[in-house]
Computed example of a mutant assay.
Amino acid sequence: MYLFLLKIINETYIAEELMMNTNYYDASETWKQELEHEGYEHHCYSTKNFKKIKQLSRVWQIILKITKITPPNQLFELGCGGGIHLASLAVNGFEVHGIDISASVASRAKNYLEEVGKFQAIKASIEVANIFDYESTDSYNMCFHFGVVEHFLELSQRQQIWNKLYSLTKPGGWIISVVPCGQHLMRKLVRERGLGGYNIPEIDYSCSLHKEEFENLSLQCILTVPHNYFGFFAAHPSLVISKIIYPVCFIISNITIPYIPISEDIKEHWAQTLIVVGRKSLI
C-alpha cells in the first residue's frame, strides 16, 4: 500500500509540474513549423512504386518477428509524418491509424494513402492531433513511433506520451519505439555539424535509458535492439567515408554484428538506431 501511494503521489506531481511549467521546450510546435510547407511527402504513381511500398522494411521485419503480430490486427502510429509506415503496413493487411501535429503533413499523408488505395483497398486513416490532448475510445494491438519521443527533452513529457500510448494499447498488445541511438561513434560530430537532416533538439537515448522508461511503464518482455550498424557513416562529411567505406561497413556489419554474442551496451556504439519493444500485461 505504501509503494502504491508513493506511485500515485509521484504521478500526480509530474502531471502538475508539466501543466504549471510553461518553460518546457515544445517539440510538437517546432516540428509543426518545420514541416508547414514541405517535408515527408511520398507518392505512389506506378506499380513499381506500389511493389516497393508492399515490401516490408528490415525494421518492420524485425518488429513483426519479435511481436508475432499478424494482419488484420489494428496498429496506431504517433507522429505518422508522410504515412510511409502506415501505407506499408496497410497494404500488408493491417488496419492502421495515425496522428500528426501538423495539418499540412497529415494532408500530404492522406493524399499518399489515397494514391496507394488506387492499387489495393486498404484500411488506413489519419487525423490531426497532439498526443498530449489526444483522447480515443479505440484500442490497438500495437502503438508505435519512429523518431518522435526523443525530441521531448523532459522526462515528465516523455512519461506522459508513454502513458497515452499505454492507454491506447490493448491488454497483451505492444508498444514499439524506434529512436536514433544517442551513443553511436559519430553522435558528437552529428550534433556539432547538424548532419543527417532536421536539426530538432533530441535526447541521447541508450539501451539502458530507454529500457528504464519502458520498465517505469510496467511493460513486459522488454527488448532493446541496436539497428542499422554504421548507418551514420552515410552522413559523414568525408566522401571517402560516406561513399566508399560506408556501404562496405554497412553491409558486412549488419550481416554479422547481430549474431555476435556481446552486450547491447557495446553494440549500441555501432548502431544508428535503437528498436525498443515492450508488451502490455494481459491483466
Rank of each mutant, 00 (worst) to 15 (best):
Y198P: 07
I252L: 15
L209Y: 13
P226S: 05
F230D: 00
N216E: 07
P258S: 07
Y259L: 07
H184G: 07
F232S: 03
Y229W: 09
C181M: 05
V190K: 08
R193G: 13
N254C: 15
S242M: 06
N254L: 12
S208E: 14
G182N: 06
I252K: 11
K188P: 06
I251A: 15
F230G: 02
E202Q: 07
G231A: 05
C249F: 05
Q220E: 11
F230W: 06
K188N: 12
F214M: 09
L239C: 09
E212Y: 09
V240L: 13
H227L: 06
A234H: 08
A234V: 11
S218G: 03
T256Y: 13
E192F: 13
I203A: 00
L189E: 14
C221Q: 11
L189H: 12
I241S: 07
C207K: 04
S208C: 09
K243G: 15
F250A: 06
L219H: 01
W174R: 00
N216H: 08
V179K: 01
C249P: 00
F232L: 12
Q183F: 12
Y198C: 05
V179P: 00
V190R: 00
E213R: 02
Q183C: 12
F232G: 01
N228S: 12
V240D: 04
E213D: 13
F214E: 00
L217C: 02
N199V: 04
K211Y: 06
P237E: 06
F230Y: 12
H236V: 07
H210L: 10
G197W: 04
E202F: 06
L189V: 12
